[in-house]
């Protein structure tokens, strides 16, 4: 099995996409690269097609919400290259609301529901997604449940309304 060094990937990305690699980090030995918002799809496609990398497996992708940060929203992608057994985490931040990201469904079919989930929970829009609807929550739900301001508890519950011990 070929081995892959983090630095090889970083160098290749910086060469291919000059100025688009915003930050590089290794939290807990996990290569994490922040990509400029507009280039995320090109980077993923490059990592997918480049034979020495071939990140052909999308482990997961999920949204993030940082209400107090300068960049409020992020998509986090975990990719896995089976040929080199290397995992990489890609991040793309944006501040627009609703946040718009390009869809990855034409690269990974599995991205379909993961992106629907991000839409359902955070209200992210994915341009080019074939079927962007709510997936887990009811269509009638208002708001985006995993954003920090959304209340967790069931608002119709009366037995917990207690001045001392309730919410």
């Amino acid at each position: 099995m070929a081995t892959l060094e983090s630095q090889t990937i970083i160098d290749a990305l910086e060469q291919q996409f000059p100025g688009k690699v915003v930050a590089v980090d290794h939290p807990y030995d996990f290569l994490t690269i922040t990509i400029a918002h507009g280039s995320i799809k090109d980077v993923v496609r490059y990592l997918y097609n480049e034979p020495s990398f071939s990140f052909r497996f999308l482990t997961s992708c999920c949204g993030m919400h940082y209400p107090d940060a300068p960049q409020k929203f992020a998509m986090v992608y975990h990719l896995h290259s089976f040929t080199t057994n290397f995992r990489i985490r890609l991040k793309a931040f944006t501040n627009e609301d609703p946040p718009v990201f390009p869809t990855l469904t034409d690269i990974y079919k599995g991205a379909n529901w993961m992106e629907r989930e991000a839409y359902d929970f955070f209200g992210f829009r994915f341009t080019g997604h074939p079927d962007l609807r709510r997936i887990l929550n009811m269509d009638s739900l208002e708001g985006w449940p995993l954003r920090k301001e959304f209340p967790l508890e069931d608002p119709f519950r009366k037995d917990k309304d207690d001045a001392m011990f309730g919410r």
Binding site: S60, C62, V76, K109, G110, W113, E117
Partner: peptide, 12 residues
């Protein structure tokens, strides 16, 4: 975030 295998493969 839980990467839940069932959720991901059920879409196929």
């Amino acid at each position: 975030h839980f990467r839940r295998p069932c959720f991901i493969y059920y879409q196929a």
